[in-house]
Design a protein around this nucleic acid. Sequence first.
DNA 1: GCGGGTGCTTGATCTTGGTCAAGTGATGAC
DNA 2: GTCATCACTTGACCAAGATCAAGCACCCGC
Lengths: 228, 228
Amino acid sequence: MTHPRVPYLKKVALFADLPEPSLLRLAEVAGLQRFSAQSYLFRQGEEPDFLYSFVEGGIVLVAGSGEKEAVVEFFGPGESVLLAAALLGLPYLVNARATTDGQALLIPAAKLRKLIDEDVALAAQCARTLSRHWRVLISQIKEIKTHSALERVANFIIAQTKKTKGAVSFALPGMKKEVATRLGITPETLSRTLRSLKKYGVDAEGDTLHISAIERIASLVETPPEAT
Amino acid sequence: MTHPRVPYLKKVALFADLPEPSLLRLAEVAGLQRFSAQSYLFRQGEEPDFLYSFVEGGIVLVAGSGEKEAVVEFFGPGESVLLAAALLGLPYLVNARATTDGQALLIPAAKLRKLIDEDVALAAQCARTLSRHWRVLISQIKEIKTHSALERVANFIIAQTKKTKGAVSFALPGMKKEVATRLGITPETLSRTLRSLKKYGVDAEGDTLHISAIERIASLVETPPEAT
DNA sequence: GCGGGTGCTTGATCTTGGTCAAGTGATGAC
DNA sequence: GTCATCACTTGACCAAGATCAAGCACCCGC
């Protein structure tokens, strides 16, 4: 009965909660696209033809094309990118490069712009998703403006896991040099910082970090018990 | 015939293009609130009761309460803040402090959340406004991560005016120390940077900047003509 | 008038993190 | 196999900008 692409749509947070009719409308215009690691899905300055929602694999949003590259954020399965550009029909501000092989649902931007004016459920859901993105970016700006390199690395580690205590291991969402610019530091500084975190139980093994006790990392960043 | 608060709603970009029925629904729940310079409209961590849209005057969004304050962005007449928190019903991530006296339209957050699920025009408009905000924040992140203090100040000056050449004068959107942290630098550094920009025709007089030729500032920031 | 608070500037000094350069290890082309 | 490339690390050095400390100018209350 239901469209073959609906199950894919269900995997994407942006669409998961939409009612059946909305899903069907989207399913009709959506297409599934494979991509391979290190390939570019789109480049800064291009006109947005699609909204990208990841079913599998991940990408990294990179600002600035030439020498000065800065990672804005990593995105993985279930997330959508560049809703903003697609909705406004303005050129992408960033590049998207795949960090792994994967597949994405592509929704034609023109169709999306049309649907959003007709479908409350979709429009409201877009607004909520964009709201979440807004908050993530605000946090990042706060972070960069008020915390040191070591604190940012610590916070990044904490953000990568849901656990608040005990041992954790996880893979970095991209190459170390990408993680570095995501944090607003150089690869060299990240390397040194990770080494200095060894004494707090952080061990790097390739692109996997082993944390012996996440609460020790958290203590680095919490305001140390103040008087007053 | 029309509600007395509709003309105020018309002044706000978020609402200006909405059809009459949507405006009326909003007008019924909106309230006008005066605020005075330096007062806090809300503080970080509070539950969002309202969406704030400025009819007159401006505010500054400040992250971090204690010692480490960092300005996230300035907002003026016609703009709306914390749509994100209001829509999601999550605590504010930032403080809002008035930079001048003014008045704001307050839309109860609960009502807004209800309306957005029923009113396509409103929902779509929220999504578009949030999209614009997203792009502004992305630009700021790029800026901080890839440009030096001098370039950031130059870009800030350029962003404050619509003109692309000739002389300009404009008032800073807040105190110098606020502008400084907005740019991710200290007040001292801003002061020194402005002085070093004197030779490029930038003159500070109180909170007003006089630029003798905006294109000279622009040339500081454009990639100097590269070979290749 | 005077005194105190505040925002801004200026100078001297320090520190963080960036830059430059060299070296290692893994990977892949041939 | 060799060689090149590339991510990453490490070390030595450097510089942009932060911090610390005065000093100035303005405003407001008294």
